[in-house]
Each structure stands twice: as structure tokens, then as C-alpha cells.
């Protein structure tokens, strides 16, 4: 496998939900690739951004259906893979960090037990080695006194630390792709940056691919290389994070300008005027 082959290769991905009132389409034919880079996926709730993240790992339950011309993780077809193989991929090659650590950590197991278990589910390692690596990873996510933290239960740690533990847990099996779905929106502002910095550093050091899903365009711009902006299940615009200022799509501009800015006060905030044409416009490809 060459190094420039994309880690994640998605072409014409659809996610549909059928219900009594008909079929609703959460993701409507989007295409993107993810290399060893940081890709931000931004949109409002209901834009299909979280569904995209889940579809990659085939984590959508019936009545949801995933269709794609191509959906490959490191060249391996996801849609045709067996459920057993998918379990190896999830958490092994591809890890996912969810929004709220409170719901992602098991409340009746200590942090240490969960970390060791997470690792041993994907690799044959002795408990002692697993513990050693857990300690090392906790240290990497800037947790002081990891020995003590290993013996704590999830309710005994703060939100920020919980999310750092989640990151540690997800990074333990050395995945190649990390999907972070609103990893910090449950955290306080001052902790957010710290957690993101840690995540950012680890992803870069290990040369992983990061798919950062968020509703906060500015945050994404700060932590990603490339940005894809989703609206109504389609990608309406894609650009380099550094060139976000030159974005042209009115939806992107609307998202940028609707945020109140402490240093540049305005009497009224700009409000998105949603154009029905955006919904129908073909999806922009975010392939590279």
C-alpha cells in the first residue's frame, strides 16, 4: 500500500431512512476522501454530518440504509465486509469519539479496566502490557498521575478528563483514522481548547487521518486542514481551512457571520436566509 492512497475513500454515499411518511434522505450522494490529514465536516443539526461519520463505520441501524458507489477504508470495502470484520475495523483501524464522555464510558467499570479491555479486544497482549500501554497513553493525553486515574470510576472524573480518557481509549489500538463527532461540545470553553490541542497533537504525531465533525465552523477552521460544509445531506462547499475567509457559498458565509463576536460587536446578528436552491444543488466533491 502506498502512502498517498487515501485512508478513507467515499464516493456517492447515501443514507436513507424509510418510515410511514416515506423515505427521508439524511445523506444525499456525497463524495470525499481522507488522507493523513485533518478533515472538518461542518453543518447544522440535521445536515447529515453525524450520519456521514456513522455510515463510514456502518453504524446505522435499520430502518436506515447505506448505499455508496464506493466506501473503502484503506482500500477495503466496507459495505461488503462481514459483521465480524466490521467489529475488527471499528475501534481497531478506525476509532470514533462521541460527544459526551458520560455516555461513552461504562459507569460500573474503572477507567483502567475499560482501557485494558479496549486494547485487548483488538490485540493479543497480556494484561500487564496492556496496563503499561494504557498508562503511557494516559500520559500522552496530559493526564497527571495516570496510576491514580486508572483506578477511578467514570463519575469520579471531570468532563474534560473524561473526554481525554476517551481519546486515550480510542488511540490505544493505534488506529489510522479517528472520527471525532462533536468531541468537545459538552465541555467548558476553557477545557475545550486543551482537549482539542491534545487530540490535534496526537493525530499529527501519529500521522493519522482525522475526521472532525462539528457545528462550529470557527473551531473546525482552527483545527483542520480541509473543511467540507454540509447542508441538507449534501456538501455545498469545500475549501482549505486557511482559505475559509474566501468562502463563497452564502450558507458558509451565513454560518460564519451568525456567531456573535466579542471583539466586533454588531447590533444584529446575520441570520441565514435559506435558499431552497441550495438543497437541490449537486453535491460538491471533497475528494483529493
Amino acid at each position: 500500500m502506498t502512502n498517498d492512497a487515501p485512508l478513507l475513500n467515499v464516493e456517492n454515499l447515501w443514507v436513507r431512512f424509510s418510515s410511514r411518511t416515506g423515505v427521508s434522505e439524511a445523506v444525499r450522494g456525497i463524495s470525499f476522501t481522507l488522507g493523513r490529514e485533518r478533515l472538518g465536516i461542518v453543518g447544522e443539526s440535521g445536515s447529515g454530518k453525524s450520519m456521514t461519520g456513522r455510515a463510514v463505520l456502518r453504524l446505522i441501524r435499520p430502518p436506515g440504509m447505506i448505499e455508496a458507489d464506493r466506501l473503502e477504508i484503506h482500500g477495503e470495502d466496507v459495505l461488503g465486509a462481514s459483521e465480524k470484520r466490521m467489529r475488527r475495523l471499528r475501534g481497531g483501524r478506525v476509532s470514533m469519539i462521541m460527544q459526551d464522555p458520560k455516555f461513552s464510558l461504562n459507569p460500573v467499570m474503572t477507567v483502567g479496566q475499560q482501557l485494558v479491555e479496549a486494547l485487548r479486544a483488538h490485540e493479543r497482549v497480556s494484561k500487564r502490557d496492556a496496563r503499561k500501554r494504557a498508562l503511557a497513553t494516559l500520559d500522552e493525553v496530559a493526564i497527571r498521575d495516570p496510576e491514580r486515574v486508572l483506578n477511578l470510576y467514570p463519575h469520579e472524573v471531570s468532563g474534560g478528563m473524561g473526554q481525554r480518557i476517551m481519546i486515550a481509549m480510542m488511540l490505544l489500538p493505534n488506529p489510522e483514522i479517528l472520527i471525532a463527532d462533536e468531541p468537545t461540545s459538552a465541555l467548558d470553553v476553557s477545557v475545550q481548547l486543551q482537549v482539542l490541542d491534545i487530540m490535534d497533537k496526537l493525530v499529527r504525531d501519529r500521522g493519522m487521518g482525522l475526521m472532525f465533525i462539528s457545528h462550529d465552523l470557527n473551531l473546525v477552521a482552527k483545527f483542520c486542514d480541509r473543511i467540507a460544509i454540509m447542508y441538507a445531506g449534501r456538501i455545498v462547499e469545500t475549501c482549505k481551512a486557511s482559505e475559509l475567509r474566501n468562502a463563497r457559498h452564502p450558507y458558509t458565509l451565513g454560518l460564519l457571520n451568525s456567531v456573535p463576536d466579542l471583539e466586533h460587536p454588531r447590533e444584529r446578528l446575520e441570520v441565514l436566509k435559506r435558499d431552497p436552491a441550495w438543497r437541490e444543488a449537486p453535491s460538491v466533491s471533497a475528494r483529493q
Binding site: L255, S258, L269
Partner: peptide
């Protein structure tokens, strides 16, 4: 964020219209 803008504008308007006093709690300084 896009909806937040609408609600904040609404609160601004209502305050002017109805001469309201607000006490607002938030973690977002913006």
C-alpha cells in the same frame, strides 16, 4: 450557531419592544 443568531436577535428585539430586564447565564462570552 445559525439558530442561535436568530434567537439572540429575537431576544434583542423583544427587549426593546417590551422594555424588558434580562439576567442571562451563559458559558459563551460572545
Amino acid at each position: 450557531v445559525s439558530v442561535q443568531g436568530e434567537i439572540l436577535n429575537l431576544l434583542t428585539d423583544l427587549r426593546q419592544e417590551h422594555k424588558l430586564t434580562y439576567v442571562m447565564v451563559s458559558h459563551d462570552l460572545g
